[in-house]
Design a protein around this nucleic acid. Structure first.
Lengths: 337, 337
DNA sequence: CTGAAAGCGCTTACAG
DNA sequence: CTGAAAGCGCTTACAG
């Protein structure tokens, strides 16, 4: 019974199999040059010792690391549930990377520090980066462009550049949410958006307007408010909405976290969800099913998005093709609307 | 203005500085052997080109990767909020690793697959592992022990082995929660635990008993129930508790997620929180502040725990000392109790 | 304090 | 189909 020795090298396997290092290397890498039975024999020897190629040596020789950095910002209390978003997408990224033979390094970078990019790229520590646009605005993207670094983002980047990205279908999301509210008889439908400068938010707003137009309704500025995705900003925005428009009987909110805050605010004002005011959220994080009441929301398949991010980046690294994917969204009807 | 060239090596810097590769290497690694001004000169040249040492080459030469794997399980709907726990602790791990010059690889491993351990260790991809005991039971730990792999766990491991670990002070946590309920005049205080086989849960139960004893009260089996940390199991357990003990007026629940489920169940049974039944949770995840009503809970400083995990593992790798740390806990009083 | 040289463990033209 | 040899870019005794 051979004892696994972690310090074995291909030379050891070569000696054991009576072949050269080259042959072992090729056999282990499944090169078509090696004879079928030679290959099988070498592999079975390697397996019996639980032999694993030394990856740093391989990376040095191949000149790429086969590892990707997923860049996120340090944990922040105010956005904690938004971070659930990160976790759900990260699972998909990890799976997509792994099935292509890549590893995932996660980097927590400060919002205002851009040094991580050259540091990890020039040291050949990673082959590319995955980021979320909402957190990494233009400055970070620009740094990566200047470095000529391979990267892909979640979200809608500045259309100015040809950037790899995958994003949700924000227009359709906004339209589905609003139409559902119209179809269930709501008359004064509010829009509680994320930051109005974000393209995602603008698209969702267009969807909102489109649904309203289709129903022959007017857009009422008194029904529009924006917040910054934090819990407290959502409470404030919902409060403004309630005060501006006493007749409000529904609201489409741009994230599940903010929708939960909005429901709380509604209650605090002595009104009921959904009886008095219906609420539709956005994202479909697993937590949305556990809120009180369970949230009707626009779901994005985040694990799938993660896999697409991984695949898209790898394809870019290997072929130079830039991929731009829009993920479908759907409406999940629960009890808040 | 020098253009950063990612393909530069120490030989290029050596030529530029008119010294040998050895000297460059030593200067960049801050060796005391190199003269102060030579070092400064070399470093400023390197900086001006944004030069970064090739890390895979360095790893190969040094024979360790300076990277640690944080091992988690694939995302699972039922435990999604428990995963918030992961995110909060991960931030701390990342910070602790980074400040010691280590990188963090995250591995999503299937619950029943143990192959990741030899794969990442024998390939010299990582120097050690960080895991959470609750998810990684004996089989995973045993694999690591058999491999003689450096690792550290969050939670209380089998005391049989000398394993690096950091865990919360579960006894004190259980006691603080229960005492708070006693002090606020509750008479029939329930215990809704995680799996009864887990040492953490047993410690929390002991704390519960201890507080009750101190107050001269008896332990009533009709007030004890266990669940498995999932949302649905918590609902079922709370329902049983309510049926067994109609006079129940408080409950100490072993996680924030389960506490939120319990509060929902209380309401579904036509009772109010905290007026009829007070609820205390456990963990102090940021989400506990956002529940309805905001949850009174036992807080563990998870980011700090993450830093200790990182430090403890690095110390073990570098010196062989096994660290066992117990983190303090405290009571956060909000509105649910 | 500095340099020449060997070595870390792979991969891959090149030659057969 | 297989092997000898050079090369990937570092680090570090060893010698001065």
């Amino acid at each position: 019974m051979p004892v696994p020795k972690s310090q074995m090298t291909i030379s050891d396997i070569a000696r054991l199999a009576n072949v050269s290092k080259s042959t072992v290397s090729r056999a282990l890498n499944d090169s078509p040059l090696i004879g079928k039975d030679t290959k099988a024999r070498i592999r079975s020897i390697a397996d019996s010792f639980h032999f694993q190629l030394n990856i740093p040596a391989r990376q040095l020789s191949l000149r790429h690391s086969h590892t990707i950095a997923f860049v996120i910002h340090p944990f922040n209390e105010e956005y904690s549930i938004a971070d659930l978003f990160i976790l759900e997408i990260m699972g998909g990224i990890s799976r997509g990377l792994h099935s292509n033979g890549y590893d995932m390094l996660v980097i927590h970078a400060d919002r205002d520090d851009v040094g991580w990019a050259p540091q990890y790229l020039n040291s050949h520590r990673v082959d590319g980066f995955i980021l979320l646009t909402s957190a990494w605005k233009q400055r970070h993207i620009q740094t990566l462009i200047d470095l000529d670094a391979p990267f892909i983002v979640w979200g809608v980047p500045d259309p100015h550049y040809q950037i790899c990205c995958v994003s949700g279908d924000n227009f359709t999301g906004g339209k589905l949410a609003t139409r559902h509210l119209i179809d269930t008889g709501r008359k004064q439908i509010g829009f509680l958006g994320g930051p109005s400068v974000e393209l995602e938010v603008q698209e969702r707003f267009k969807g909102y307007c489109s649904a309203l137009n289709d129903a022959g309704r007017k857009i009422d500025p008194g029904l529009i408010e924006y917040a910054d995705y934090s819990h407290s900003s959502a409470i404030a925005a919902m409060q403004r909405l309630l005060e501006k428009s006493p007749l409000l009987d529904a609201v489409f909110v741009n994230s599940d976290l903010m929708a939960i805050a909005a429901m709380e605010t509604v209650r605090q004002n002595g009104r009921r969800v959904p009886a008095d005011i219906a609420v539709v959220g956005y994202d479909g994080l697993s937590i949305s099913a556990l809120s009180n009441p369970p949230l009707t929301t626009i779901r994005q398949d985040l694990p799938m998005a993660g896999e697409y991010l991984a695949q898209g980046l790898i394809r870019y690294i290997q072929t130079g093709e830039v991929t731009r994917i829009t993920m479908p969204v759907d409406l999940v009807v629960r009890q808040s609307a």
